[in-house]
Design a protein around this nucleic acid. Structure first.
Lengths: 201, 201, 201, 201
DNA sequence: CATGAATGAGAATTCATTCAT
DNA sequence: AATGAATGAATTCTCATTCAT
């Protein structure tokens, strides 16, 4: 099957990454089998190795793709006027990513939360652009007095993204019962900006 | 005689669970080896199977023990006057658990965050008493107007505990750089109660 | 099968080494399969790995054993009065090793002649005692005027052992036709000491 | 046109054989990869199969070519007056072959010394003309009394060629230290004709 | 002829589990 | 109870070969 178009090769690669994401999400990296992934993607077992030199590289490609997709959504997010609106837009974009790429997001969240020394740096590296997006919004917010100025924006940004992941975990953990994905953007923004404290505190 | 042998049996069991927690935390469930655990605990490979029918059961025992230890600390936590103080006391107790049982907590957090269908129910079940403790405090807070009344306390409690885990993950992920464990209780309570919003919002 | 005697474990190890020697000799290292070796030795495939951490280590053990056996024979060789007799005794001992351990010797010769950078040092190291034995005899011969003194004994010793191997290769290559093993000692010693030159040269 | 394409086809074939010789020599048959060879020769993986039906056939072609080249050199070797000179000329020709085609000779020697039943006959067949050359010289030597007449010339010829290979193996095995190629012709002839015996024997 | 993607048999190695002692 | 040798299914990865383009 020589002279096959560049596109069809990219297609195969994409198909493999997609299938791998699903499997990694469902069973974890260790338990997902390379053979199974390749077969489920419609290829023989060896074919995967024409695209990725090892299981780890395949995993790295999945992470990269996951972050890439998230970043695209973030960048096309409609930005509101207030910091609150802008954060909600980012959160909504993130939820949209989740809806469209559940496998990828699951892998990303699971690995980020598992702090494995082998994968953590990889994730941090690829997550950086997303965090930067949030930092940007928060720094504007600090200037406008909408965000408290006694904590460094990068730390707050990590918190914001962490909160999102937390919601997803609870969503998955409850079998989708609570919180429903529709509620997540508001929930996260409220929690992040307002806290749980009462008015008379 | 019987009593002594019973005690020594419990001792062996405890030793195995303890060692397993360390290994699971360090290498993950899949990569931690049964024989290594048994050897490090001072036994031969096969002995472990006199106490636990399988690796999965050993893992379940570790989770159970982790929750058990956390609960003991929670129950002995000194409770302050205000809701804020009481939450800080619970968070401090949790951090203390972490300090004394890093392996156990790592396994617990990692597993909770990984939402594996096989273990998630187990964790939820064993974590329930902890959540109940927090709910109790929060409900009092609602009555006293210190906690917002538009969100169900159980959901807020899950959020509180999730925030704690989030801090731990960031602590581990940053190699202990940030946040330092000492700062975690204040950080969590502030984040949870006050949010990141500025004063003039 | 715990508490099995130390001897029976050694026995299993020996059996594995023995079988491996046969297979390596017959098919070469690359083509000999670990599974097949283990099965032919009477074990399941995994058992081999309880004794040798890898195929390479198994191979090293075979080489070591081969040299060990050869050395034992060399050391018990009856030594004659003249250098010629002593060399013939060594050659005869070597042939006896060959008769009793054909697999081992084949592996040794094949690897020695293949000068693979990975195995050559191993072989040289293990062959050293044998070479030393020959050097010893040759040095005595130089003193007594029976061996020419214009070439270093270690080089001559390598030549002597190389000639032996050469005979074996021809023996195997001809399907045992020529030279027959019985003739090898005389043949090697004559070739080595006298050369092919005629009397009137 | 046909001629040109025929020539270019031969060229490609030669290039493949040449590259294969290098790879087989460097890594052994089992570890040399078909695609690497094809790529290094300037072709895509599949192209090799337009010239050789299998890896084994490629290997056979290498052996054949190696013998062919050696024969050409032998045939153009300047012949001296005495048997000693003539043998030295053949040895010098052989060394020259080695210098110009190290890969080919390495493969040949290694394979000859490994007595693999699959390749040994092939080698014997192709080596026959070389052996015949040596036999020719030796038979003349017997008539002139320069070569001992109590051993069949064909056997002596095999010994002579074997000695050459032995020197090469030692040369390669010592990393080129000893013997240097320049010394090989003299060394081999002396060893072959005179032996290691002292004068007063 | 050349190409190189696809194939799948095969290889080495791991490891949870069993069970005779 | 404790032991640890034996097991074999499962897993990752390699690579010679095929064949559609």
């Amino acid at each position: 099957m020589a002279r096959i178009s560049k596109e069809s090769k990219d297609l195969a690669r994409q198909k493999l990454i997609e299938t791998a994401a699903t499997h990694f999400a469902a069973h974890g990296i260790a338990r997902a089998g390379v053979d199974t992934i390749s077969n489920d993607a419609g290829f023989a077992k060896g074919t995967l190795y024409n695209y990725f030199p090892s299981k780890n590289d395949l995993f790295a490609a999945v992470i990269e793709e996951a972050c890439h997709r998230a970043l695209r959504k973030y960048e096309s997010a409609e930005m509101g006027a207030t910091v609150r609106d802008r954060l909600r837009a980012l959160a909504a974009a993130d939820v949209e990513v989740l809806r469209e790429n559940e496998g990828f997001v699951k892998v990303l969240v699971r690995e980020a939360m598992s702090f494995r020394p082998e994968t953590y740096p990889l994730i941090v590296e690829h997550l950086a652009p997303l965090v930067a997006k949030v930092v940007e919004v928060l720094e504007a917010g600090v200037n406008e007095g909408e965000i408290r100025d006694d904590r460094p924006p990068p730390q707050l940004a990590l918190l914001f993204i962490g909160l999102l992941s937390l919601m997803y975990v609870q969503h998955w953990g409850s079998g989708g019962l609570w919180p429903p994905l529709d509620d997540v953007p508001d929930l996260v923004v409220t929690t992040f900006l307002d806290g749980a404290g009462g008015r008379n505190e």
